[in-house]
Design a protein around this nucleic acid. Structure first.
Length: 405
RNA sequence: CGGGCCGUAGUGUAAUGGCAGCACGAGUCUUUUGGGAAGAUUUAGUCCGAGUUCGAAUCUCGGCGGCCCGACCA
């Protein structure tokens, strides 16, 4: 894409109405725009990253057996009354239609997927079955915070699995731990599996936490083994030695929760009467699990983690573009641009008439992994520099394409 | 939802009771072109409302909006 046609603009200043580094960088570099506290638009660059994140998640959810659906944002009130969450879900947005009918804006989708599952599940032969969606969630947070990390509207992937019995749910739940580990690894995030309380859902759940000082959660973990618990579970135990392996030392860190998985058991199947007939024709309750990943939060987490004094540093897998082609002599980049496109390389082509310094500064701010410069100096070659390295190399385009593969 | 801080051109900042200024951006023209160029010229602002005062960006009250701490996070 030609940068002259990109609907985006970098700013020389950080926004004054943001404190969180993720929002400061993403806004300044033109990835997102703030509309209100906790509500952001995704501009072309930001949306491209979102799409990359979604693609990885979709791939893994499909492999895990999920079928993608898209549920509504507008929810009938009755469903929320059925689960008693019309009153108890503190952050539920309630809206009123012109005829006075009340509805909810979906903060999560159990109230939709369970009635749907009831229609789709009749027999043990229908189980297990899983659905997932990528959808905007609305939560009337008492306080938004940390830029894009906790907003009132955010993008989330939610996955729901339905099983004939608890053992099958348990088996699947364990499998999803592995699926999630792979997702976060592919996203370039080091996410730690953490035992958490299940909130109103269940006794326990697991969170995937990226350990960093800016996270809003407190995590206690072992420096030797996999043991990790959040504050609610670890409580005031204040143990210095790992209760699991008895060898490691317990360390504390803040964390950003990028994923959370729950065993719902029959908590929602019961009120919605989601049942199936087993081999003997007996009516049995369906066991369910739910599995979430905060997609817009992943975007914010990566921005928060991968940056330097000059700007963002996108991991290869979710970078908005793979290559940033910067031409310093007008028209000089056109053929390289065409060749890169021909080679299926996602390239942002800075064809604008700006000074070299401005172009370099903006390229660093945007943070695309590879920078390619063409100018009088480069002759028939291209100058290649990685965003995270200082040194550049003068090579042919062909050599560069080999480097990419 | 409790508490604190804050609100000035598109963006970032000055002016603390007395002429609203600077930088960047944007528009036009000329010259520039390997790390945020130079000149000329134009553009654009005190969140809203009330009050105090000879006089309010500045003080007071209310509203709206933003950030931070805490609570909450299904």
């Amino acid at each position: 894409m030609r940068q002259s046609e990109l609907f985006s603009k970098v700013s020389k200043n950080f926004p004054a109405d943001e404190e969180a580094l993720n929002a400061k960088l993403l806004i300044r570099a033109g990835f997102i725009n703030k509309e209100m506290a906790g509500v952001y638009s995704f501009l072309p660059l930001g949306l491209r990253v979102i799409r990359k994140i979604e693609a990885i998640i979709r791939e893994e959810m499909e492999l895990a057996g999920g079928r993608e659906v898209l549920m509504p944002v507008l929810h009938p009130k009755e469903n929320w009354v059925t689960t008693k969450r019309w009153e108890s879900f503190d952050a539920l947005y309630k809206v009123k239609a012109r005829d006075g009918r009340e509805m909810a804006l979906g903060p999560t989708h159990e109230e939709i997927i369970f009635p749907l599952a009831k229609k789709l599940i009749n027999s043990y032969k229908d189980l297990p079955i899983s659905f997932y969606q990528i959808q905007d969630k609305m939560r009337d947070e008492a306080r938004t915070k940390s830029g894009i990390l906790r907003g009132r509207e955010f993008l989330m992937k939610d996955f729901y699995s339905f099983h004939a019995n608890e053992a099958d749910l348990d088996r699947f739940y364990e499998k999803m731990k592995g699926v999630y580990a792979r997702v976060f690894e592919r996203l370039g995030l080091n996410a730690r599996l953490v035992e958490a309380s299940g909130g109103t859902f269940s006794k326990y759940s697991h969170e995937f936490q990226v350990l960093t000082s800016v996270g809003e959660d407190e995590i206690y973990f072992c420096d030797k083994c996999d043991f990790a618990q959040n504050k609610e579970v670890f409580g005031l135990a204040n143990q210095a030695t790992c209760p699991s392996c008895k060898k490691g030392k317990i360390e504390a860190s803040n964390g950003i929760e990028v994923g959370n998985i729950f065993k719902l058991n029959t908590k929602f199947s019961d009120p919605f009467q989601v049942t199936y007939k087993d081999e003997k024709g007996e009516e049995k309750p369906v066991f369910a699990g739910c599995y979430g990943i905060g997609i817009s939060r992943v975007l914010g987490t990566v921005a928060e983690l991968f940056n330097d004094e000059r700007g963002l540093l996108w991991p290869q897998a979710i970078a908005p573009f793979r290559v940033h082609l910067v031409e310093l002599e007008e028209g000089k980049g056109d053929t390289v641009y065409k060749d890169l496109q021909g080679a299926q390389v996602e390239v942002l082509y800075d064809d604008r008439k700006l000074t070299p310094g401005e172009k370099f500064a903006e390229a660093d701010l945007i943070g695309i992994p590879w920078r390619l410069v063409v100018s009088k100096k480069t002759g028939a070659k291209v100058e290649v520099k990685r965003r995270d390295e200082e040194k550049a190399a003068l090579i042919t385009l062909k050599e560069f394409l080999n480097l990419l593969n």
